[in-house]
């Protein structure tokens, strides 16, 4: 991962009439990074992606893709971005292979069936490449959305809740594929998701967005460090007591002295979900 900034958002605002969907969004994504954008429903994550890729115009603020404003040079920007949209959508007239060929052509790129076959194979869609897209199962349609976003081989891949409705096995194979894209194809990956364990598992850095504002942006490790660990004490009376403990020092003796009949002790490590809930419920934390 380099220090080169490939995506930059600075005080981005978007208003729809009187409603402000994005109030103040500011963060950067570096080249080769796996970045997660988290936030509850209505936080403005999809609106931000729409501003980035030109599906909607921002009201104010700055956006740069590889140093270029998307509104000033949309061709350069669109070639650099692969967007996996939240809604599953595809042209029902065509087969997966036809959809991918058309997609490459619409980006002005020459045919490259070998590359498209590789994507289909990686997403376990090879045997379905020549059937009408409407005949695919829900999980297959989701994977076809990822294939569409990759058809023009963009350096930056934006995935807007890509694993919703995908079963555990396929989700795991998708994670492996995303890791492969990052390590072998040097892609920068930005992920929005409701599965916080997904972000914890994959992301180097996380931004939490709430009510149209970026509340915090930090490495996953630092974010997890913001929440103290919990000591779980099980007593002989089958009671469970939870005591928050400092991440840097643990004076076990003095804590346990208060509980004479201890049966078991364990330490609960903080989860990203807990950090997320703390920040979205109390943004000033």
């Amino acid at each position: 991962m380099s220090n080169e900034v490939v995506l930059k958002f600075h005080k981005v605002q978007k208003k729809f009439g009187d409603f402000t969907a994005l109030k103040d969004v500011s963060f950067e994504v570096k080249k080769g990074e796996f970045f997660a954008l988290l936030g509850p429903n209505g936080a403005g994550k999809t609106t931000l992606i729409n501003c980035l890729c030109g599906l909607t115009d921002r009201t104010s603020g700055e956006i740069a893709v590889l140093g270029v404003d998307p509104e000033k040079d949309p061709v350069h920007t669109k070639l650099s971005l692969g967007i996996v949209e939240q809604e599953v959508n595809f042209d029902p007239f065509f087969t997966p292979m036809e959809i991918l060929r058309l997609r490459r052509g619409l980006f002005g790129l020459p045919a490259d069936d070998a590359y498209l076959e590789w994507i289909l194979e990686k997403l376990s869609l090879t045997d379905k490449k020549d059937v009408r897209a409407r005949q695919l199962s829900g999980g297959m349609k989701r994977r076809l959305m990822i294939a569409k976003a990759l058809a023009h081989d963009p350096p930056i891949l934006i995935l807007d809740e890509p694993t919703a409705g995908v079963d555990v096995d396929l989700r795991n194979s998708l994670y492996d594929f995303l890791r492969e894209l990052r390590t072998q194809k040097q892609k920068t990956i930005v992920l929005t998701t409701h599965y916080l364990e997904e972000a914890e598992l994959l992301a180097d850095r996380v931004a939490i967005q709430n009510l149209g504002e970026t509340i915090i942006c930090d490495t996953t490790k630092n974010l997890l460090g913001k929440k103290n660990r919990t000591l779980v004490i099980e007593t002989c009376e089958d009671e469970e007591v939870r005591v928050e403990i400092d991440n840097n020092s643990l004076d076990l003796e003095s804590i346990v002295a208060n509980y004479p009949h201890v049966k078991n002790l364990r330490i609960h490590e903080p989860k990203l979900e807990e950090v997320f809930l703390e920040f979205t419920k109390n943004p000033k934390s």
Binding site: G54, F90, H152
Partner: peptide, 11 residues
């Protein structure tokens, strides 16, 4: 069908 983005995302 929500595929308007197929027209708007390419350059």
């Amino acid at each position: 069908s929500g595929t308007l983005s197929d027209l708007l995302l390419p350059p």
